[in-house]
């Protein structure tokens, strides 16, 4: 493979390289950043990459925007494929809504937890969870002790016998 062909390959598929690069940046941001807003930004980048991917897909080399021309020579005009644009318009709307909803959630999270770092929020969650677990363990122990007392009273005479045998044989 000659250098020229590599270069050709690269520049010929230029739009895809951009898409992949953008996508990876977005993905990496989502994975690596704790800040919820940054995560959303990463998500947006990721989505934008897909938008670019779709739009570039509809491009035909030498074509113009798909607006119907009238007049002389309009029969020879080469238009870009309009359908991907339309599709991506919908996807953009979805993206905007997602971002808005995500940001709204971030605002609420900030109000509820006082932080928008995911680590802190998770940590706070774990703490409440642990408190709850401990509380529950305590309550369970109390309930069990009470129940054992009760069942010991009720069941005084016909429970399991091993314990008794054991005591007898030792005596």
């Amino acid at each position: 493979m000659s250098l020229a062909s590599i270069a050709d390959n690269f520049f010929g598929l230029f739009n895809y390289w951009v898409v992949i690069l953008l996508m990876m940046i977005g993905f990496y941001t989502v994975i690596s950043h704790d800040n919820l807003v940054k995560k959303l930004i990463g998500l947006n980048l990721f989505q934008t990459a897909v938008f670019v991917f779709y739009i570039s897909m509809g491009k035909i080399s030498g074509s113009t925007a798909p607006i119907l021309m009238s007049g002389k020579g309009s029969e020879d005009v080469l238009y870009a494929h309009p359908l991907p644009h339309v599709l991506i318009l919908t996807a953009i709307v979805v993206g905007v809504s997602t971002t808005a909803l995500g940001l709204a959630l971030v605002v609420r999270i900030n109000e509820a937890y006082g932080s928008i770092e995911e680590d802190d929020v998770l940590e706070a969650d774990f703490e409440t969870q642990e408190e709850e677990t401990e509380e529950e363990a305590e309550r369970m122990a109390r309930a069990e002790a009470r129940q054992e007392r009760e069942s010991a009273q009720q069941d005084h005479d016909d429970g399991r016998e091993e314990e008794d045998d054991d005591r007898e044989t030792r005596s």
């Binding site: 993905f27 989502v30 994975i31 690596s32 950043h33 704790d34 995560k39 995911e118 680590d119 998770l122 969650d125 774990f126 969870q129 642990e130 677990t133």
Partner: peptide, 20 residues
Amino acid sequence: DARGVMSRTWSTGWMTLWVA
């Protein structure tokens, strides 16, 4: 259990990594 690695809440980063 609730804090165990298999059933606790993962951070979004980890989840996304698994997707990848």
